[in-house]
Amino acid sequence: MSIQHFRVALIPFFAAFCLPVFAHPETLVKVKDAEDQLGARVGYIELDLNSGKILESFRPEERFPMMSTFKVLLCGAVLSRVDAGQEQLGRRIHYSQNDLVEYSPVTEKHLTDGMTVRELCSAAITMSDNTAANLLLTTIGGPKELTAFLHNMGDHVTRLDRWEPELNEAIPNDERDTTMPAAMATTLRKLLTGELLTLASRQQLIDWMEADKVAGPLLRSALPAGWFIADKSGAGERGSRGIIAALGPDGKPSRIVVIYTTGSQATMDERNRQIAEIGASLIKHW
């Protein structure tokens, strides 16, 4: 067993022997301040990774656009098919120029040779490549099948209805392509620590998230040296922004954090800054 596999296998073990965790309302004060600064709703939840206990939450059962955070769930569904012998990570998928959609920095470079399922998941999570996500959605049967996968996990809230990039439209009061912070946090925890996926697939999923290259201005910008984070960000229309993450000190994750916002007129930089400040408060009061 590799060191990384050992780390993920012992996530519940280490967490069980940690000192009790206590909620700190100071972080919620910052979440509410972010709402004021952005002029928009902000949803927040913080779960203990081992027990699933909610440590703090704000608007945990209000719907927010998922945006690209759905790509972690998508690759979880792909990995479940791999575990069941219905898919192979090494299978190569070929596609054409007509398949390319807006923001496809990886797939646009491989029109000639195609990409493997493993490479597509890596591109979808680490670079948020939209064509990679659409190609992977095709392998599982489309958005409705991802929703069905989530329902089978016990998540009857999260739903995907459309493809990239239309799913980022974020129309107010439109339930399409949305989740709730509580539902997303619980589902992410199941994917990373539950028995739904094999140990190898859980490790692969967290490795992809740990290698995320496009979430630097968010929670990662607030992390002290030595902290662990595996995350996936999302951005959408109407001032929408979000991030889902597993993080913790001492090089291992111990909490799940989900943050979503929508309806702001603020710039992307300002949305990023507010999420980073929430992260800084979380870490300060850990």
Rank of each mutant, 00 (worst) to 15 (best):
R118C: 02
K32Q: 07
P165R: 01
L282F: 15
T178P: 14
S201M: 04
D177E: 13
I54H: 10
G52T: 09
A182P: 12
M67P: 04
E237I: 00
G279Y: 15
V31D: 07
Y103S: 12
R220C: 11
D48S: 06
E166K: 04
I283F: 05
A225W: 09
E61A: 01
L196G: 04
E56P: 07
E195C: 00
P60N: 01
G251D: 03
K71N: 15
K213P: 12
E175G: 03
G216A: 12
H151A: 05
W208V: 05
I283N: 05
G236H: 11
E26K: 04
R202E: 01
S104Y: 11
I259T: 14
L218N: 14
Q37V: 09
L199T: 09
C121F: 00
D99E: 05
G263Q: 03
L38P: 04
T139K: 08
E277V: 06
Q203F: 00
S80K: 14
M184Q: 10
R159D: 15
R92K: 08
W163M: 13
V106K: 12
K53A: 10
T158D: 13
V258E: 07
R176L: 00
G236K: 15
S240L: 10
L196P: 06
P25G: 04
A77P: 08
R189V: 15
L111V: 13
A225I: 08
G90E: 07
T158F: 04
L191D: 09
V78K: 05
G194C: 04
E35P: 05
I244R: 12
L223N: 05
P65I: 07
K232N: 13
Q86P: 07
R202P: 02
G226N: 13
R91Q: 04
M180E: 11
E56I: 11
S122R: 09
K232D: 07
P65A: 04
F64G: 04
N173K: 11
D48R: 04
G114W: 11
K213Y: 14
L73K: 06
P253Y: 09
W227C: 05
P217L: 05
Y95H: 06
H285R: 02
D33E: 08
K232C: 14
K53P: 03
M209I: 14
G52S: 13
T69S: 06
Q203L: 03
L223P: 08
T138E: 04
A40P: 10
L199Y: 07
K30Y: 15
L150C: 07
Q86V: 09
V106A: 07
G251F: 09
S57N: 04
L111Q: 03
I243G: 10
G76W: 03
L28S: 06
A235M: 14
I243L: 07
M180Y: 07
D212K: 15
L197Q: 10
N152A: 12
L167Q: 02
I275C: 11
I244W: 11
K144P: 01
L79R: 01
K284R: 06
T186A: 08
K144H: 01
Q274M: 12
R91A: 07
L137C: 01
A34L: 04
I259G: 08
G216K: 15
H94F: 08
E237F: 14
E166R: 05
H151E: 02
E195I: 00
G248V: 07
H285L: 01
K284C: 03
P217G: 11
R59S: 03
L73A: 09
R81W: 08
D161F: 00
G114M: 13
E166P: 05
L120N: 07
L199K: 01
A185E: 12
Y95S: 12
V258F: 07
M268I: 05
E119A: 02
Y44K: 02
T193K: 00
H285S: 02
G251A: 08
G85Q: 09
G85R: 07
K30T: 11
V29T: 13
E237P: 00
A182I: 03
M115A: 08
I229Q: 10
R59F: 13
V101T: 15
P181A: 04
G39V: 08
E164K: 00
V78R: 02
Q97P: 04
N98D: 11
L192D: 06
M66I: 13
N152E: 15
P165Q: 00
S240M: 07
L199N: 07
P165E: 02
E26I: 13
G216P: 15
P143N: 05
S281N: 15
E237G: 00
A200R: 06
S57K: 03
L135I: 12
D83R: 06
G76D: 09
L223I: 03
E61N: 03
A280F: 06
N50E: 12
L111N: 11
G216E: 15
S122E: 10
S254V: 06
R63N: 14
I206Q: 08
P65V: 01
M67H: 06
P105D: 03
T198H: 05
E119T: 09
R59Q: 09
E102F: 00
M268D: 15
K213H: 07
L79Q: 03
M153C: 04
T69Q: 09
E56W: 06
N134G: 02
L205H: 07
L49P: 00
I54L: 10
D250H: 10
S281T: 10
D207G: 03
E62W: 14
K213L: 07
D99M: 07
T193F: 13
L205W: 08
E35T: 08
E210N: 13
S51R: 03
A84W: 03
L47C: 03
D48Q: 07
S68Q: 14
F58A: 04
Y44W: 08
A235F: 12
F149P: 03
Q204F: 01
E102H: 02
G114S: 12
L100V: 09
S281M: 15
S233Y: 13
A245Q: 08
